[in-house]
């Protein structure tokens, strides 16, 4: 299964959320591979706390591989190469967790040629043989990278794939997330151009809300009643707006609460962070755990 992680805009927490989902999925006993296709700023290494590839790798990054610069991309086994002690031993029952970092100093693709799509197809095909899940961080907005994976997935008809569109819970983000999917040259439009069936493609796209502040959240306890009422009204308005834009509950796979750890330092949230050091909220870990199950749960992906 291929999961493509995209966001309407930068700064949505797409990378930190998708890495955490991948991490949780591996803890659930699946072999997981994370592909950093965010070529302009390949920082997945930092989130996994692998300092040697914190800003991408100098040799054999994905960017270099797609341009034909190396025969196979560099792989990092997170369970052995992470700098965080808590991550460095594979928990019993967990699956493999492998990071394919981007190239250090790489830039966004400025075009997609057939050769690049062919290499992308080869990569996905080979990873699919050995991993239960390949999480592909496709970067923000309309990009040649998104175009490339749309083309590649058309050529792999028997490999299942799904898209996660990450967005924040604000007016602008809701409108932009909808635009990225249904707008001109959006995923559906471009996907159809490359040979995807738009109906089928739509069924394979779900939204994930990030940094969500629930009106009844513990953080809001100190607020005045007026503030709380205003927030509640805003939330209702946003829900209505989201519904109108097809970003509402039915198309939503899950939401991740606002968590200071994710805001201040993008990192994996381990059970230790929740239970021992208590720097992260249990709700956040639970949300990741839930999403990690839902991405492969067919009932969450039935036609809309």
């Amino acid at each position: 299964m291929l999961i493509f992680a995209i966001s309407d805009k930068g700064g949505t927490g797409r990378s930190v959320t998708s890495t955490n989902i991948g991490y949780r999925h591996a803890l659930q006993g699946n072999d997981v591979c994370y592909l950093d296709f965010d070529f302009g700023s390949p920082t997945a290494g930092a989130i996994f706390s692998v300092s040697s590839v914190a800003r991408g790798t100098r040799n054999g990054g994905l960017h270099e591989y797609l341009r034909g610069g190396c025969a196979e991309p560099h792989r990092v086994d997170v369970w052995t190469e992470s700098d965080r002690e808590g991550l460095r031993t594979k928990p019993p029952g967990a699956g493999r967790l492998v990071l394919l970092p981007g190239s250090e100093g790489g830039g966004e693709l400025s075009a997609v040629d057939d050769e690049m799509v062919r290499r992308c197809v080869q990569l996905f095909g080979r990873l699919e043989e050995e991993f239960d899940l390949c999480m592909v961080d496709v970067s923000a907005g309309r990009s040649f990278t998104a175009e490339m994976v749309l083309q590649a997935s058309v050529r792999l008809p028997s490999i299942p794939f799904r898209w996660l569109v990450f967005h924040r819970w604000t007016r602008q983000h809701i409108i932009a997330a909808d635009g990225l999917v249904t707008g001109a040259d959006g995923l559906l439009d471009a996907g159809a151009r490359f040979g995807h069936d738009p109906e089928e493609l739509r069924d394979r796209i779900r939204f994930v809300r990030t940094a969500v502040l629930e009106p009844d959240a513990a953080e809001l306890v100190g607020l005045r009643d007026e503030q709380r009422a205003w927030l509640s009204a805003c939330d209702a308005e946003l829900r209505e707006l989201a519904g109108r834009h097809g970003v509402g509950r039915t198309a939503m796979l899950g939401k991740v609460p606002l968590d200071p750890v994710l805001q201040w330092r993008e990192q994996l949230i381990s059970d230790e962070d929740v239970l021992a050091s208590k720097i992260a909220n249990a709700e956040t870990a639970a949300a990741f755990d839930e999403l990690a199950k839902k991405i492969v749960d067919d009932s969450a992906w039935e036609g809309l």
Partner: peptide
């Protein structure tokens, strides 16, 4: 000389055949 890359591509030729359903019973590295 990269014989591994050549062998890998030949293995891809078989693995990507449209006659295969790609629903292998388990995942395992090459």
């Amino acid at each position: 000389l990269d014989l591994g890359a050549i062998s890998g591509r030949f293995l891809d030729l078989a693995q990507s055949s449209p006659l295969l359903d790609r629903r292998a019973p388990f995942r395992i590295p090459r």
